[in-house]
Design a protein around this nucleic acid. Structure first.
Lengths: 116, 116
DNA sequence: TGCACGCTTGAATGAACGCTCATATGAGGG
DNA sequence: CCCTCATATGAGCGTTCATTCAAGCGTGCA
């Protein structure tokens, strides 16, 4: 805002600094953005969607998501590190599952919102 | 799945192809991922958050979001193209606002989920 | 013990992205 | 008209990121 308008300038400047105080912290913003970044890749969304249907081993995920097994593994590492999926070894296979119903709900909400 | 286990193989293969049918379309997945991609950048989230507080001109957004005016303008173009914000010219200034309450709700939901 | 299978991991590659800097557009005031 | 202010836009640049390819590792079976 320019400073050539006194009466308005004050009002707006005040509400601006007020808003500044209401802006979320950088840490919070980063966390939020990172959350969304995880969901911003079609492959990862495919994987999560598949896992929302059932617990699956890596090969099955690979087939359902139509991505090479290696690529799936890379993405699964990201999902693992972000805490969105759990995994357990069973012999030679590793079974992945969604970590919580919260994620499932999030995906559903997302599809509701973006698929309309 | 390997083909050395007959009775299980059938069951799993069947549910796999069943799941394949339940996987969302590529177009839908892309749309969903793109939606999230927009929210995956801290600067854009800052901008959207600022706009959730009030309608704002570019300079104010720049100050609230702590980003250069040019960077803000670039990001606003993306937000404009994605239909998340509206804008109207008023003299030399351009005022931006959130397109709908849906976005506002989405941001709130996101922060709820990721800030805990 | 050796080999096949399922999965992971690291390096390399190409694409996408966000920022900056410089320039352009356009409206208003002197 | 010219100059300034508010914003937009384009090129260039460094970074991030997803995929592929090749190699590594652990498990189970012959």
């Amino acid at each position: 805002m320019t400073d050539d308008l006194f009466q308005m300038s004050e009002t707006f400047e005040d509400s601006l600094s007020e808003m500044k105080g209401r802006m979320p912290s950088d840490a919070g913003l980063l966390k939020m953005a990172d959350m969304f970044k995880i969901l911003s890749d079609p492959t990862r969304v495919r994987i999560l969607y598949a896992l929302s249907l059932s617990q699956l081993c890596v090969q099955d995920i690979s087939e359902l998501a139509q991505v090479s097994q290696s690529a799936v593994s890379h993405q699964l590492r990201i999902l693992r590190n972000s805490g969105l999926v759990n995994w357990k070894k069973s012999g030679k296979q590793v079974f992945y599952s969604l970590d919580s119903d919260a994620v499932r709900t999030l995906i559903e909400k997302a599809s509701e919102h973006s698929l309309t």
